[in-house]
Nucleic acid binder design. Structure first.
Length: 140
DNA sequence: TTTCTCACA
DNA sequence: TGTGAGAA
């Protein structure tokens, strides 16, 4: 398929698909006219890239780990360099920390929402923001 | 419709 | 990390 179809099927702007290629995340073949040609597998791959970016991984890390995540039970690097193991551990821990942070912020929002809705129902006022734990910034 | 590149937030 | 514009 060409870039337009992949864009439509993944909900990813064409511009961004070219950007991912430039970053080494996608390697489409080329038609005679120079148009990019993507196989069926590219759809899943793009979704996975989006997910990892959303999880906070930079493209250069994604490029490294993407083959490992394809089918986690397959060993892609029989002799994994210690550096790769370290990278994977590092990113896993970063994600864990991010999940913790997201959970905390979600709970803070949820708690406030409950209080506001309760107040709306009873006609009383919502609690002062300062009585609740401060929202926490996600790690950068 | 697609390509590319340069500049920019 | 991503976007906009212009030209082919």
């Amino acid at each position: 398929m060409r870039i337009g179809e992949l864009s439509r099927r993944t909900g990813t702007p064409r511009r961004l698909l070219r950007y991912y290629e430039e970053q080494g995340l996608l390697l489409p073949s080329r038609c005679r006219n120079g148009y990019r040609a993507y196989d069926e597998h590219a759809v899943d791959r793009v979704m996975q890239i989006r997910g990892l970016l959303d999880a906070g991984l930079p493209t250069r890390i994604i490029k490294q780990v993407l083959p490992c995540l394809d089918k986690p039970r397959t060993i892609h690097f029989p002799r994994p360099e210690p550096e790769m193991i370290a990278t994977l551990r590092d990113e896993r821990d970063r994600m864990t920390e991010r999940i913790r942070s997201l959970t905390r912020n979600r709970d803070a929002i949820s708690e406030y929402l409950d209080a506001v809705l309760r107040a709306g129902a009873t006609g009383t006022t919502a609690p002062e923001p300062s009585t609740r734990p401060a929202p926490e910034a996600e790690p950068s």
